[in-house]
């Protein structure tokens, strides 16, 4: 489903150019659940950003045989809206929006009508056992609840691929297990799950783990 060949990515820091990815070769099958591990600064998040179309790298990137390498960032935004659900680090939310509006955000960019948005958001929150939080502000929720809201937002537009960047990073063990079981359930439903993690326990729950070392990927 996702194939990357010889992917490079570098950033300019001041006057210097820092190479983060130095030739990534990666293939992720449809419906698989994989972990990406590596030290801090190894380029895990950068790889995730490229997979989601938030950034562009140099090299070949195909998604379901469609070449995304030559797409513009605006075209990649369209691709992201249709195919990708993203769970950010630390359950990032829009502070000025309530739970409903946070979850509805991908649908508003997808130009769904208000009735459909209402129905989908209610269903997504029900699936995460968060029906009573619809009009609450995000500061009223616990860490676990916030993460489930983030997952609801990532699923709201029914994407095929879920990307999660350290989804259990700031959670206690029990909540971590709850979140992990949600991902496993999604995997059973046929979603492709890609998780960036430091946590060996999370990686063990996945079918395959890729390690990034020296800008390249090693299958673990």
């Amino acid at each position: 489903m996702i194939k990357m060949v010889d992917l490079h990515k570098s950033y300019r820091v001041g006057t210097e150019e820092v190479k983060v990815l130095k030739g990534i070769d990666l293939e992720i099958k449809q419906g698989s659940m994989v972990a990406i591990m590596g030290r801090s600064g190894s380029g895990k998040s950068t790889l995730l950003n490229i997979i989601s179309g938030l950034e562009k790298g140099n090299g070949r990137y195909t998604f379901k045989d469609q070449n995304l390498s030559d797409k513009s960032l605006n075209e990649l935004a369209d691709f992201r809206r249709k195919h990708i659900g993203f769970v950010l680090q630390n359950c990032a939310m829009c502070d000025s929006k309530n739970v409903f509006d946070n979850v509805a955000l991908p649908l508003r960019y997808g130009k769904y009508n208000e009735i459909e948005i209402q129905n989908r958001v209610e269903k997504a929150l029900e699936a995460m056992e968060l029906s009573g939080t619809l009009h609450k502000t995000v500061d009223m929720l616990s860490g676990g609840e916030l993460q489930r809201v983030a997952i609801a937002r990532a699923l709201i537009h029914n994407p095929e691929v879920i990307l999660a960047d350290e989804p259990t990073g700031s959670l206690d063990e029990q909540t971590e297990q709850t979140i992990l079981s949600i991902f496993k359930q999604l995997h059973r439903e046929g979603k492709t799950i890609i998780i960036v993690t430091h946590d060996r326990q999370v990686a063990d729950a996945c079918e395959e783990t890729f390690c990034i070392r020296d800008g390249k990927i090693r299958s673990d």
Partner: peptide
């Protein structure tokens, strides 16, 4: 933070 949420949502 706000903008990052918008970006992952398709902005």
């Amino acid at each position: 933070k706000n903008f990052s949420v918008h970006f992952i949502s398709g902005a």
